[in-house]
């Protein structure tokens, strides 16, 4: 066991500061464990969002040493400290940043904008018919989109994306990945509806392929790759729209 310094951004947009907390950690302690330790033993007023503690719910994403990640799956033994002060390792914890996240207090941000964008791309199966029984899908068809279903909507990709951080209207990697996930699903019939939305200048074409979203994703979803594939779909859609006059339906 060793003691580390957790430097947490406290306060709200009007008044904030960094406060240091001396926290004992073990070899397999996660950043979230340390946050719970601070709240339970040092400062009960610390606000943060967390739930499952097993990288499933996506609620505990924060900036750890300026890098967005889910704190429940970030082990101190696997990350480098931001600095060393008086022989102690210092880790800086901040709320998720970006135009999609409005900072509320301490480590809590508002996800409203994030989920509005997610909802806008129609992240559900769309059918033109009303089929009875099961929709059969082969393992090969499932494989096309399965890795993308692992997204837990933690927002780490959006916080890492330089475009999302500078353009508040950009749909962002999470929403665009969800659009491609449903477009690649053989059971879905709403591809053109989604392509009409993501072909907007603030859609997939705003992505400049910095790929930081894929580096930040704790579930290895690879949004960067999905967005480029979405661009290919969007190109086909736009060509059809221009030359054949077909619109999303």
């Amino acid at each position: 066991m060793e003691n580390i310094i957790l430097r947490i951004k406290r306060g709200d947009p009007n008044h904030w500061e960094y406060r240091d907390y001396d926290v004992p950690v073990e070899k397999d302690s996660t950043v979230l464990d340390a946050l719970y330790y601070v709240r339970d033993n040092i400062d009960h007023s610390l606000s943060f969002r967390a739930s499952c503690r097993m990288e499933v719910c996506g609620s505990c994403a924060m900036m750890v040493n300026s890098f967005p990640t889910t704190t429940c799956s970030t082990l101190f033994s696997k990350i480098k400290p931001a600095k060393i002060e008086n022989g102690k390792k210092v880790y800086i914890i901040e709320p998720l940043r970006g135009e999609s996240f409005k900072w509320i207090r301490d480590l809590v941000v508002d996800f409203d904008e994030f989920f509005k964008k997610h909802e806008s791309i129609k992240p559900y199966l769309i059918r033109k018919d009303n089929p009875e029984g099961q929709l059969i899908q082969s393992p090969k068809e499932l494989k096309k989109y399965y890795p993308l279903t692992l997204c837990i909507k933690c927002g780490a990709c959006v916080a890492a994306c330089p475009i999302s951080n500078s353009d508040p209207n950009y749909l962002g990697p999470a929403a665009l990945t969800a659009a491609y996930r449903f477009n690649a699903d053989s059971r879905d019939q709403g591809k053109n509806l989604r392509l009409a939305i993501v072909s907007d200048p603030e859609g997939c074409w705003r992505c400049h392929f910095s790929s930081e979203c894929s580096n930040a994703c704790p579930k290895n979803v690879d949004p960067a790759s999905a967005i480029q594939k979405l661009k290919v779909q969007s190109t086909g859609y736009e060509l059809k729209r221009i030359f054949l006059g077909k619109r999303g339906e």
């Binding site: 500078s166 910095s210 930081e212």
Partner: peptide, 24 residues
């Protein structure tokens, strides 16, 4: 497009050479 957000483009720390740094 916000100026403050654009400063995020020049961030290097924690970024991969083949991705974020190549972008910059």
């Amino acid at each position: 497009m916000s100026l403050k957000g654009s400063l995020f483009w020049i961030k290097i720390k924690g970024r991969q050479i083949s991705d974020g740094i190549a972008f910059l």
